[in-house]
Write a protein that binds this DNA or RNA. Structure first.
Lengths: 222, 222
DNA sequence: GCAAAATTATGATCTAAATCATATTAAAAC
DNA sequence: GTTTTAATATGATTTAGATCATAATTTTGC
C-alpha cells in the first residue's frame, strides 16, 4: 500500500452524490492509496477508521471462516464505496475484508469526514440508504439461493452477475474465487464449468471466461 | 386484516426516532391494522405502497422458492419496521413476504409520508441507515454460515438468536419455521433437536423450546 | 531464469443431509 | 364434538457435493 496519483473528484459514490460546493472539502479530506494485486485494503474484525472509494481496479469483499475457507459477498468496481458495512449500531469493526484482485487505487476519507458529508448532502444519505437496501435484497436473494438452488444454478447466477458487473460477456476470475463467490468448492466449480463448456454455454481459456449463451445460462436460475 | 385500536405513538421505530414536533403528523398519517395468526401482511413481488411498524404480535419475514419452499430471513418484534427492504433503487416491489405468526397489530404509513419523515428527522434517517447496516451484516454472516457451517451449528445459532429476540430462554416456534429459519428441512431439524435434547442443551414440550445451556449451545457456533 | 508456490486438472471415496414413506398426534373448522 | 387438515414423529433410501489424493501446469518471487 502506498500513496497514489489523484482521482478526478467526479467518479466515486461520495463525489457523485455530493453538492458541488462540498467537492472542495472532499478534495481536502481525501487521501489516495494504491494497492497491489492480493493486497488487503482492510481486514474483517479490525476497527473502522474510514471509508474507501474505489477509483481504479477490482476488489473482492469477503468473509473468512477458519484459516482456509471464505465467502466472497461482493466484487467492487470503479466508483464503489467500501467499508460501509462497518457503520452499524454495534462496535465499529469491519465485518468483511477487502482485498485487491488486481492493482487498485482508492480514495480514503476518515469516518468523521464521511459522516459530515452525509449530514451536508441529503442526496448522498438517500443514495447510501438505497444502496444498503439493494445490497440487503441481494444478500437475502443469495441466502435463498444457497438454501434452495443447487450448485450449478448458483454458479450460473454467479457467472451472470460477473458479466453484469463487468458490463461484458467476457471476464477473468480464478476458479477458487468463483467457488467462494458461489458458495462451493474449487473441485465442484471445475466440474460444473466443464459441463457448461460441454453444453456450449461458456468458453474458457485459463482464467478468462466468455459467456456464449446468456439466455440458456439464465434458464438454470429460474 | 381489519382496523384496530390505536398505538401509543411511543413504541415504534418511526415514533422513537422522530422529533417530538413530528409525532402529531405521525398520528394523522398512521393507520392501524390487525392481522390474525397466519395472515399475510404483505407479499413478495407486490408493489410497495407503504411501510409498517409492528405494535403487537410476532411477524416472520420470508422469501418463497417455488410453491413449497421458503427461507425466513427475520422475525420482527414490537416496534420493528417492516417493508423497508422494498426501498432500493430498482422497482418498488417487496422482495420478501411478511406473515403474522401470532395475532398482530401494526401501524401503517404511506410511502410518501415515511419519506417525508426521513427528510424531517435526521436521526430517523441515521437510525434507519444503521439498521440497514446491521441487517446487511447479519445477512452476510448467515450466508457464510450456510456455506461453511453444518446444520446442527446453524440450528444452535438460530435457537440462540430466537432466545435473544424473545429476551428469554424460553420461546415457541414450529419445527417447520425453525427449519426455514436455519436453512434446512423439517426432518433434519427434528433429528438435531432430539440430539440437543439428549445432550441436555434444550428441553422441548410441543412447540415450546427452553434453552438449558446457552453456553454449550454457543460452543456449536464457534 | 529458475526455484518455490500457487493454481488447475481429474479420478476415487465418503458423508451429511435431502427425500421418500408412513404412522401418529394435535389443532382448526364446521 | 366430530371431521378435516395440519403438524409431528421416525425409519429407510438416495444423492449432491464435499473431501481426499495426486499430477500437471502456471504464476510469481528472488
Amino acid at each position: 500500500m502506498k500513496k497514489a496519483g489523484n482521482c478526478d473528484l467526479n467518479t466515486c459514490f461520495l463525489c457523485q452524490y455530493s453538492i458541488p460546493e462540498w467537492i472542495a472539502a472532499v478534495s481536502d479530506h481525501r487521501q489516495h492509496l494504491s494497492f497491489k494485486k492480493n493486497e488487503t485494503i482492510f481486514q474483517e474484525g479490525s476497527p473502522v477508521k474510514g471509508i474507501f472509494f474505489l477509483y481504479h481496479g477490482k476488489v473482492k469483499v469477503h468473509k473468512q471462516w477458519g484459516p482456509d475457507k471464505e465467502l466472497i459477498v461482493r466484487f467492487a468496481q470503479r466508483g464503489d464505496i467500501l467499508g460501509h458495512r462497518g457503520l452499524g449500531s454495534g462496535e465499529r469493526l469491519y465485518t468483511v475484508s477487502a482485498t485487491a484482485v488486481e492493482d487498485t487505487t482508492v480514495c480514503y476519507t476518515e469516518l468523521a469526514f464521511f459522516e459530515a458529508s452525509l449530514k451536508v448532502n441529503p442526496s448522498l444519505s438517500l443514495k447510501l440508504m438505497q444502496f444498503y437496501a439493494d445490497e440487503l435484497q441481494e444478500a437475502e436473494r443469495k441466502m435463498r439461493n444457497l438454501v434452495h438452488m443447487d450448485v450449478k444454478s448458483r454458479l450460473a447466477d454467479a457467472l451472470l452477475e460477473l458479466s453484469r458487473l463487468h458490463k461484458a460477456l467476457h471476464f477473468t476470475i480464478s476458479r477458487q474465487d468463483l467457488a467462494s463467490f458461489s458458495g462451493t468448492t474449487y473441485e465442484t466449480v471445475y466440474r460444473n464449468l466443464q459441463e457448461f463448456i460441454a453444453e456450449k454455454l461458456i468458453a474458457v481459456e485459463g482464467r478468462a471466461i466468455t459467456i456464449l449463451s446468456e439466455k440458456k445460462l439464465r434458464k438454470y436460475i429460474a
